[in-house]
Amino acid sequence: MSVEAGDLVVRKSYGRDIMFRVTAIRGGEAELLGEELRLAADAPLEDLEKVEEGERRKRKKAARQKEEDCYRLFRQEARKIRAQSEYEATSGYQSESDFFELPGRVLHIDGDANYLERCERVYERAGIPVYGVHTAEEKMADEMPSLLEMVRPSIVVITGHDAYWPAKGETNDLKAYRNSKNFGRAVRAARNVVPQMDELIIFAGACQSYFEHLLKAGANFASAPERINIHALDPVYIAARISFTPFMERVKLHELLRNTPSGEGGLGGIDTKGVLRRGLPAAKAVGPNYRLHLK
């Protein structure tokens, strides 16, 4: 059975562990992008096996369940954060008052259009204002200044696909990574516009990315400390937690990283403030980005 661009496949030599989509075929090699993981890979055609419809549905169902679990966990933690800080929003007033919340706006730049669409659905379900952009990883840095000027985000997510190739160098060799250099350039382009780490929160990276390089470039959070694969929704989880953490509080790093789909091996970061702002009275809040809380 011949393999063509657009087919869903698995690699026999890796135990059929990850489902990929074939993006191109050159000679006897296929270029692959992960369907559920932000991983890029190449493989000889003879190592590939098409995914049958039944298997595809099974894997998609499992992926949807993981997406739902991620969303549910986020909602639980958002309620916990809100319960802990609601008193601060109304203290000092003679009576309980209605108030409104203004979550941080997210600029999500993604090298994969399918993942971008999935991420946008989760942002929207969570009530987080988001502006999504699909562009190739190598173009992200060039587009960054104009996007920041147009969107004025509190949080920027820079992601897509990446891979570490041991045959091309050690883990501290930037040339051994598919897109870590491009992600790093995009981070630096953002920091040239907004240098302050708490004025613009940046997540950068994908599967197996050069974690240390991305932090040095200026990211608050990045992947992947242990060069493992990360889930498609890991960047969303990080951005969502920051968006709903009040700006007077710091994000609890250990709790945040532990609860992501990939865990601390896949993601890391530095002390960072939240970006949520609350206001009174609720009657004065207008527009789609405001969330009302009525007593």
Rank of each mutant, 00 (worst) to 15 (best):
F99A: 10
Y290Q: 12
D7M: 04
P153T: 11
Q94P: 03
G160E: 00
S97I: 15
L107S: 05
P44R: 13
K273G: 03
L257G: 05
L45E: 08
G263Q: 03
L233F: 15
G263H: 11
I25S: 10
S2Y: 04
E212F: 06
C70Q: 07
A63V: 10
V275K: 09
T260I: 10
A141C: 04
G205C: 03
E120I: 15
I270A: 05
L102Y: 11
R72T: 12
K61E: 15
F203Y: 15
E68N: 11
E212R: 08
Y93K: 14
G54L: 14
F211A: 01
T90A: 14
K216W: 09
R21F: 11
E35T: 07
G268Q: 07
T135H: 01
E96G: 15
K284R: 13
E36V: 07
E138D: 11
A78M: 13
F211C: 04
G205D: 03
S13M: 01
G28K: 14
A285H: 02
E138H: 14
L256F: 04
P235Q: 12
G169N: 07
L32Q: 04
N172R: 06
L174W: 01
D234A: 15
G205T: 02
A219G: 06
D42T: 14
A89N: 13
S209C: 05
A285F: 07
K61N: 13
I18H: 13
P166E: 05
E4A: 10
L200C: 04
F244G: 01
L257M: 12
R118L: 10
V3T: 11
H254R: 13
L200D: 05
K80A: 08
G287H: 02
T171K: 10
A126Q: 08
K139E: 08
L200R: 08
K58F: 13
A219S: 08
L73E: 14
R277G: 02
I242E: 04
K12D: 00
L37Q: 12
K60Q: 14
L280M: 10
A5M: 02
F244W: 15
K61T: 11
F74T: 02
I238E: 11
E137Q: 12
L147H: 04
A204N: 06
